[in-house]
Amino acid sequence: MRYPRAHGKLMTSILAALLACTATLPALVQAALPAANADGWTLRKETDNIKVYTIDQDDSSFQAFKAEALMDTSIENLMAVMVNPESCVEWVHNCTKSHAFGDGHFHDRYAYSVNNMPWPVADRDYVLRIRTQGEQNSGEVVMELNAVPDRREAVDGLVRVDRSDTLYRFIPEGDMTRMVWIQHTEPNGAIPGWLVNTLLVDIPVKSMEQLERVTREERYQDHTLVYGEEGKLINVVPSKQSGDD
C-alpha cells in the first residue's frame, strides 16, 4: 500500500518522536527484550558502520529492533554523553525534553521526557528508570531503560507511554567503541503496527550518527570511568575531578 510522500514524512516524524526519549544503557536485561543473539533477527538496513535488525514480538504487533555500530569515539566520551540526563535532546532523533528527577544514584536513577509530536498526534511523555553497570576487566558498560509510568503523576494534555524497554551495550575496541542498541516500544494510540515496523529502521541510524558527532563536542571530552575496589563502574567524571579525588 502506497501513501503520499507528505503522509510518509509525517508518520516517520511520529514514530521518531515515540521512540525518542527511550533512548537515551547481563543481569539487567528484561525478559521483554529479545537477546542480541536470538534466532529471528532480520537485517533491514546497513550503512557504512551501522546495521539495523528487526524481530517479531510474540505479544505485540510492533517489532523490536537491534542496531549495531562501531563508533569512531572512545567509551569515555560516549559515557560522558549517556550519563547527562539532558543529552537525549542532543542525539536521539526528535527528542525535545529530558531531565532527571528523584533521589536516584549512578547505578539506578530516573528521567522524565516529553516529545513534541507532529500534529494531529498528541504529545507523549515518558517516565524512565535507568540502570547502569560496568566491568573494569572487560571495559564493557551496560545500560537499561524501562518505562515506569506510575512513578510520576499524569500531565494534562500528554499521552504517557506505558511500555518501553531499551538496552545499550558499549564495548571498547581500542580507541573506538562498539554500541549495541536493542529496543521495543508500544506507542500508545491508534498507529498501526505494520506502518511503524516499515519506518522503524531509520530512527536508530539517524540517532547513532548524531551520537557519534555529539561525543566530539568540547563538554564531553576528557572524562574518566571510575571503578570501585571490586572493579565495578561507580561513576563517570571529568578527568580533572578524578585527579582531584
Rank of each mutant, 00 (worst) to 15 (best):
K9C: 00
K9E: 04
T12K: 08
S13G: 10
A17E: 00
L18N: 00
C21R: 03
T22L: 01
L25A: 14
P26D: 15
A27E: 15
L28E: 11
A38L: 10
D39P: 10
G40I: 00
W41Y: 04
T47G: 13
D48C: 04
I50Y: 09
D56E: 15
Q57T: 09
Q57K: 14
D59A: 10
S60C: 13
S61Q: 14
A67L: 06
L70M: 10
D72Y: 08
S74H: 12
E76A: 06
M82T: 05
P85G: 09
P85W: 06
C88F: 02
E90M: 05
W91Y: 08
C95R: 02
G104V: 03
H105L: 10
R109G: 09
Y110P: 03
A111S: 12
S113K: 07
V114H: 06
N116K: 03
N116R: 00
P120Y: 00
V127F: 01
R131D: 12
G134D: 09
E135G: 04
Q136R: 13
N137D: 14
S138K: 08
S138E: 13
G139E: 14
N146A: 08
D150C: 09
E153F: 11
V159E: 00
R160T: 03
D162F: 06
D162L: 02
Y168F: 15
R169E: 10
P172E: 13
G174P: 05
R178P: 04
V180K: 03
P192S: 11
W194S: 13
V196R: 00
N197I: 01
T198R: 09
L199W: 03
L199K: 01
L200W: 03
D202E: 13
E212G: 07
R213K: 14
T215D: 11
Y220L: 04
H223Y: 14
L225S: 10
E230K: 11
L233E: 03
L233Y: 10
I234L: 14
I234E: 08
G243C: 03
G243V: 07
